[in-house]
Amino acid sequence: MALIKDVYNASFYSGFVVHATAAIPGFAAETFLRDVQPPHFPGFEFKERMIHTTHIFSQSLPAGFSESAPAFTALVSRLLDAGQEEKLAYIFLPEYIARYGLEDFETATGLLCQVTQFVSAEFAVRPFLLRYFDRMLSVMTAWSLHENHKVRRLASEGSRPRLPWAMAIPELKRNPLPVLPLLENLKCDPSAWVRKSVANHLNDISKDHPDLLLRLATEWKGTSPETDAIIKHACRTLFKQGHRGILSLYALHADGLSLPGFRLEAPEVTPAQPLTFTFSIENQLNKDRELRLEYAIYHLRARGQLTRKVFKISERSLAPGQALQLTRRHAFRPITTRTYYPGLHKVALIVNGQELAELPFELKDV
Rank of each mutant, 00 (worst) to 15 (best):
A69S: 11
Q325N: 07
A272D: 14
K287C: 12
G43R: 13
R333S: 12
Y96K: 06
K5E: 13
L344D: 13
Q273G: 00
A121K: 03
T227E: 10
R78G: 02
E315R: 15
E95P: 01
L238K: 05
Q325V: 12
A166L: 09
L182G: 02
D365G: 00
P334K: 01
P181H: 02
L177C: 02
R162P: 08
V18Y: 01
L111A: 04
R244H: 10
L300C: 05
V119H: 08
S66A: 14
F44I: 07
L359D: 09
S58G: 00
D228L: 08
L172D: 05
T237F: 04
L80P: 00
L247I: 06
V36S: 09
A319L: 12
F16P: 03
R99K: 07
E171Y: 01
V17A: 15
A296C: 07
R328H: 10
E106G: 05
H40G: 05
T307W: 00
N203P: 12
P70M: 12
T109A: 01
E45A: 10
L130W: 02
S14M: 03
S258R: 14
L291T: 07
S224I: 08
L213T: 06
A166G: 13
L180D: 00
N175E: 12
R328Y: 11
A251P: 00
A29S: 15
Y100Q: 07
P127I: 08
L259I: 15
T237M: 05
C235Q: 03
M50G: 02
G222W: 12
P38I: 11
R236W: 03
Y13C: 05
A357V: 15
L154P: 03
T337S: 13
V351W: 10
F12E: 08
L186H: 00
A29V: 04
R160Y: 09
S156K: 00
L249Y: 07
V115H: 03
E157H: 06
D134R: 05
L275K: 10
R34K: 14
S60K: 01
V351E: 08
I51W: 02
L356H: 06
A69K: 02
T107W: 05
W220I: 08
L180I: 15
A168F: 04
V119G: 03
L33Q: 07
L154R: 00
S66N: 09
